[in-house]
Simulated assay, not measured.
Amino acid sequence: LMEESHLARVIDPAGGSWYVERLTDELAAAAWSFFQETERAGGLPAALRSGMVAERLAATWAARSAKLARRKEPVTGVSEFPLPSERPVERDPAPDPYADAPGGLPRVRRDEAFEALRARSDAHLAAAGARPKVFIAALGPAAAHTARVSFAVNLFGAGGIEAVHEPVSVDAETAAGAFTASGAGVACLCSSDALYAEQAAGVAGALKSAGAARVFLAGRPGEYADVDAYVFAGCDAVAVLTSVLDRMGVA
């Protein structure tokens, strides 16, 4: 490696790439700036009473919540690669040392929006014996639809919505029967842009005629007849999943 990749030919072997040092310096500068702002406000007690600290925290949480909802900040096992069938961990709750303390700053959890969606799915499973379902209407061969099928299954699974991908692909003639057999309430088209142009409108119409409450298409928004909404990388997953559960009457 040293001979072929020149690993030893560096100006300062102890310097590394300097990225950690740069991040550390930026963090220290930002922290010092906030400390100075707090002091100008009259100190921490005054900053807390005035709401300055709460406002700063709320702004930061709002920005982070938007990233979490759009999966710009993915959470493995929650918003990415969920496993709805996993058994929940059963344990006694940890003691809360602040349970009886009045006031204080709000406490939030990174996963809370997706946890709320999964809780709705769990309640539906307990009441109805099955999770809410989405029918994956894949068009064409696997090479054309696999990537978007994986995306859609992952997206809907983050909300506790079970994906039914059977049969492997459908067309305008078979989509209605497959949707009815799936027991799903909504459907999602998955394929390539080229096949969307040829088949999306016909398949979406067949799904609507079979009773699909909402037909999604995995891909960037376009103009396809009978397609109600689009799901794509960077879309607001929490808003999409909330609307799906609402439409299917999942309390």
Rank of each mutant, 00 (worst) to 15 (best):
G43M: 06
A201V: 00
A239D: 14
T60H: 07
R71I: 02
L155F: 13
R70T: 02
D246M: 05
A206F: 07
E3M: 07
E73A: 14
A210E: 09
L125K: 09
V231M: 12
P167Q: 13
L217E: 12
T60N: 07
G159T: 05
R56F: 00
G177A: 15
S33H: 08
E4K: 13
A237Q: 11
V53G: 06
G159C: 09
E162L: 11
Y230N: 12
S50T: 04
E112V: 03
L7Y: 09
A142V: 09
A14K: 13
I11P: 00
L68E: 09
G177Y: 03
P167S: 14
A30C: 04
G160A: 06
E73Y: 06
V75M: 15
A41W: 01
S169K: 10
P97F: 13
F216S: 10
R22C: 02
D122Q: 07
A200V: 03
C235Y: 12
A158N: 04
D111C: 06
D12V: 02
D96N: 15
V53S: 08
E86D: 12
K72S: 12
S169L: 04
P82K: 08
A251D: 15
R56Y: 01
F156Q: 05
L195Q: 08
R22L: 14
L83H: 09
Y19L: 14
A172D: 15
Y230R: 10
A144Q: 14
G234C: 09
A28C: 00
I136E: 06
T76I: 09
S85I: 00
P84H: 05
H165C: 03
G202P: 01
V186C: 07
A113W: 01
D236T: 07
R22F: 10
V227G: 13
A101S: 04
